[in-house]
């Protein structure tokens, strides 16, 4: 049984069908990448999985239980933690307070976990009492990830963690994601940076205007001509 099974879901924004029946699955311990251009429906897929949107058709199962239609705060209690697009830290809370908010589902934050997060992100330790709004973009992304980790995820949803960051920092972030995955957290990552994401992912899916057009292991997709043309900017000479 897969950890997450998405079965033919359709999601609408009013009359517009953003997802036109897509299916995929994520196995326990995997890193799975969702790729696609702007407007392909990657973020919508993630929002639907994390409970911020409801599918109008189809089923989502987590651990074999149906979760489609459950609100976000219930899904967090199942261990689905979402790092939303654009980082979205609480700018007027200190770094420490942000991390505490991440553990909101528990009565009080786990001090060991907090120590682990600071170990993983030494930058955040340095800025523990600074307002999150004063951090640089990369630091904010790290904070957003650390905040999600404070909720003890089984499945971590990352929405474009590389957005707007310098290449060096993007590499750091992806290293951290790999590290998180190695501790047993399953990761579903949405990316436009296909090369980085596929280098990391066990498997990948490619979305185009709300439909699933390709799937395969990371290596297969990296080798696929269409992917190389669309996302890696290489010209195909035939």
């Amino acid at each position: 049984m897969s950890l997450l099974e998405v079965d033919d879901i359709e999601v609408r924004y009013g009359a517009i069908r953003a997802l036109k029946g897509i299916s995929f699955h994520v196995e326990e311990g995997e890193v799975v990448a969702l790729l696609g251009a702007n407007g392909a429906g990657k973020t919508t897929t993630q929002k639907t999985v994390s409970g911020m949107m409801r599918p109008s058709l189809g089923e989502i199962r987590f651990d074999g239980e149906r979760i489609d239609g459950l609100p976000a705060h219930d899904l967090i209690n199942l261990g689905i933690c979402h790092v939303p697009e654009g980082r979205r830290v609480f700018p007027l809370m200190s770094v420490a307070e942000n991390l505490e908010m991440g553990a909101f589902r528990f009565k009080r934050p786990d001090p060991q976990l907090l120590a682990r997060c600071f170990e993983m992100f030494p930058r955040l330790k340095e800025r523990e009492h600074q307002y999150a709004g004063t951090l640089s973009g990369g630091e904010q992304q790290m904070l957003a990830i650390a905040r999600a980790l404070m909720g003890k995820p089984r499945l971590l949803l990352l929405d474009e963690p590389s957005m707007g960051l310098a290449p060096l920092i993007v590499r750091q972030i992806f290293d951290i994601v790999r590290e998180i995955n190695s501790t047993g957290v399953t990761v579903l990552i949405v990316e436009q940076n296909a090369a980085q994401a596929l280098g990391l992912a066990n498997r990948g899916y490619v979305l185009e205007t709300g439909e699933m057009v390709l799937s395969g292991t990371g290596k297969e997709l990296l080798a696929d001509d269409r992917i190389r043309a669309a996302y890696l900017g290489e010209e195909i000479t035939t």
């Binding site: 705060h73 830290v89 609480f90 007027l92 809370m93 909720g151």
Partner: peptide
């Protein structure tokens, strides 16, 4: 309190508040 922090989170960023598991 816990409730007060939840309010602060909603005030600052409702989406993020939702993402941290607050029943907004």
């Amino acid at each position: 309190s816990r409730l007060g922090r939840a309010w602060a989170a909603i005030r600052e960023d409702e989406v993020a508040a939702q993402a941290t598991g607050i029943n907004t």
